[in-house]
Simulated assay, not measured.
Amino acid sequence: MFPAMSELYHNRILELAAGIPNIGDLADAEGSVLKVSRVCGSIVKVDLTLDEAGETITAIAVDPKACALGQAATSILAENAVGATVEEVIAARDALKAMLKDGGPPPEGRFWELRHLEPVADYPPRHTSTLLAFEAAVAAIEEALQKRTSSGQIALPVRE
């Protein structure tokens, strides 16, 4: 049985979707990725820069053209990404995916508000749009690190 739409689009989701910070572009972005949901047509672009060590996000800009669920996730990312480590963003993306697809617990730490998206788990067609911002952020991090590796600035961290 599916939860009521009011449970899916509750007040906090709508507040997050209406108040997305850091909208726009970063002129000096090291990573810039656009992700599209083929299921619903939602689009989220994420630009970001990393610290000198390539371990922490120093700036982010987002440009979402998504449903309220995708916008809410983008809002949570944009609000909390600056100062987050690369590992925190990857862990949040992985926890969000597990919460939606495998019934895992909601993400913790700085991205704890993703818990408000837990009812989306019952709507598989909405999973992709809800994940777009975090998928784009991880891809932008990878792009930034790859550029640095290609230019000889840093070595990519080992990921298991």
Rank of each mutant, 00 (worst) to 15 (best):
F2P: 03
P3H: 08
S6G: 00
S6P: 00
L8I: 04
Y9R: 02
N11S: 08
I13N: 00
I13T: 00
L14V: 05
L16I: 08
L16G: 10
L16M: 11
A17K: 04
A17S: 13
A18F: 08
I20H: 01
I20E: 01
I20D: 00
P21Y: 07
N22K: 03
I23Y: 00
I23R: 10
I23G: 00
G24P: 00
G24T: 01
L26E: 04
L26Q: 08
A27D: 07
D28C: 01
G31Y: 09
G31R: 13
G31A: 10
V33N: 07
L34T: 13
K35M: 12
K35C: 06
V36T: 09
R38H: 15
R38A: 15
S42L: 01
V44G: 03
V46W: 09
D47A: 01
D47L: 02
L48F: 13
L48C: 11
L48W: 11
L48P: 04
T49I: 04
L50H: 06
L50E: 07
E52F: 03
A53S: 13
E55S: 07
I57G: 04
T58I: 05
T58C: 05
V62R: 08
D63T: 04
D63I: 00
P64G: 00
K65M: 06
K65G: 00
K65E: 03
A66W: 11
C67N: 05
C67Q: 06
A73Q: 08
A73L: 06
L77G: 02
A78W: 03
A78S: 09
G83E: 05
G83T: 08
G83M: 04
T85V: 05
T85W: 11
V86A: 10
E87Y: 05
E88T: 09
I90T: 12
A91Q: 12
A92F: 15
A92I: 14
A92V: 14
R93P: 04
A95C: 10
A95H: 10
A95R: 07
L96S: 11
L96D: 07
L96P: 03
M99S: 10
M99C: 13
M99P: 09
L100T: 09
K101V: 14
G103S: 13
G103M: 15
G104K: 12
P105A: 15
P105F: 09
P106T: 08
E108Y: 05
E108C: 02
R110Y: 15
F111R: 15
L114C: 10
R115A: 14
H116M: 03
H116G: 01
H116L: 06
L117R: 02
P119E: 03
P119N: 02
V120K: 01
A121E: 15
R126M: 07
H127W: 07
T128Q: 14
L132M: 10
F134I: 10
A136T: 04
A136N: 06
V138S: 02
A139W: 12
A140C: 13
I141N: 09
I141T: 12
E142L: 09
E143Y: 09
E143L: 10
A144N: 09
R148T: 06
R148Y: 08
S151R: 14
S151N: 12
S151A: 15
Q153C: 03
Q153W: 04
I154N: 10
I154D: 08
A155S: 12
A155E: 14
A155V: 09
P157E: 12
E160W: 06
E160F: 11
